Computed example of a mutant assay.
Amino acid sequence: METVTTFTFFKYSSLGSKLWAFAMMAFSPLVLARVKGLQFCKLMGSGKENFNPLPDWSVYAILQVWESEVAAETFFETHPLFSSYQKRTSQLMTIYLRPMSSKGLWSGTNPFEESACIDPKNPYLAIITRATIKLRFLIRFWQFVPYAQAGLKGNPGLLYTKGIGEVPIRNMATFSLWKNKDALQLFAYQDKAHKKAITLTKKLNWYSEELFARFQPYRVSGEWDGISELQFLKSD
C-alpha cells in the first residue's frame, strides 16, 4: 500500500465565508493534526493573479499526504472539518496525485514518496514548488517574480496555476497543472525569463529551504474554473 497525495482548493464568495476561512487558518491545523492516516499537511492561503504577493482572500488550499487512498477518502467523505469547509465554499476541488519525483525539503522533510503506479498513458503533470525566502532577499525576489513568470500567461500547455503559501511574502509555493511533459519543459528550459530566474536562484542562493516535486494527477473530485480538460479524471 503506497501513500497518496491530495491537493484541495477552496473558493469563497461571501464576506462571511472569507472571514471564516481566514480564522480557520489558525484552528484547522489543530484538528488536522489528529486526523487518522494523515502523514503530512499544509494549510495555505493564496496570492492574487500573476503571483502577486498580496493575498487573495477568496482562495485557500490544503496539501495532504495520506498513508493510503482509503484514509484520504474517509476524511473527505466523513470528517466534520471537511464537511464544514464544503458547506461554505462556492467551489471546491480535490486532485489526487501520484508523486513522480521530489527534490528538496519542506519544513525539514521531504514528504513525497515516488509512486510505483505511474500510468504511461496519462500525460498530465502537476508541479509543486515551495521555498522559504531569506529575509535579505525578500524585496529583490518579489520585484523579479512578475518578469520570471511572464511566460505562464497565455501558455497553451498550462491548464492552471496558483501562487500559495503558509506565511505571506516569505513562505511561497506554486501549484501548476500541465497538459504534458513537453509543455512543461518548453517553459522551464526555453522561456528566457524563467531560465534567468533559475540562474539567479543558483547565483544568489536566496532560499533557506526549497522543494520541487512532480506528480501525475489521476483523479479529480469537485469543480474548479479553468481545468475542464481534466474531466476524464473525475471520480464523481
Rank of each mutant, 00 (worst) to 15 (best):
I62S: 00
N110G: 04
T94Y: 05
V35E: 14
P80F: 10
S17Q: 07
E67S: 09
L81E: 14
S17R: 01
L54T: 04
V59H: 11
Q39K: 15
W106L: 14
V65H: 02
P80K: 03
V35A: 09
M100V: 08
F22Y: 11
F82H: 08
F9I: 03
S14H: 14
P55Q: 01
S28T: 10
E114T: 15
L97D: 06
N110A: 11
P99K: 12
S107K: 12
G16D: 00
K36G: 06
N50A: 14
K87H: 11
A116Y: 07
N110P: 00
V31P: 02
S83N: 15
F75S: 03
K48S: 03
F40P: 00
A71D: 11
M24Y: 11
T74D: 15
T94E: 03
K42E: 03
S58E: 11
E69D: 07
G37C: 05
M100R: 13
V70L: 12
G108S: 10
L15N: 13
K42G: 00
S83W: 09
F27K: 13
L43F: 12
F10Q: 01
K18P: 00
V65P: 01
S90R: 09
Q64M: 14
L19Y: 11
A72F: 05
A23T: 07
G37R: 02
T78A: 08
P80H: 07
F75D: 08
A26P: 00
K48W: 02
S83G: 13
H79L: 01
F112M: 09
L81N: 07
Q39G: 05
E49S: 15
Y60R: 08
C41Y: 01
F75P: 00
N52D: 15
P55M: 00
L32C: 13
L81D: 12
L32K: 10
S14A: 14
G108N: 09
V59N: 06
L32R: 14
N110T: 01
S46K: 02
G108R: 12
L54M: 10
Q91Y: 08
M25Y: 03
L30Q: 13
F40S: 06
H79V: 02
G45P: 06
Y96I: 06
S90A: 10
F112R: 11
M100G: 06
T8N: 05
C41T: 05
L43K: 03
K103S: 11
C117S: 14
E77S: 13
P29R: 09
K103A: 11
P80Y: 06
G104T: 07
S28E: 08
N110R: 12
G47Y: 04
A33E: 09
S107A: 12
M93D: 00
K48R: 15
M24K: 15
S102G: 02
E113N: 11
G104Y: 06
A61N: 06
Q86T: 07
S68H: 13
L63Q: 05
P80E: 08
S90Y: 09
E114I: 15
S90I: 12
C41G: 01
F51L: 12
T94A: 01
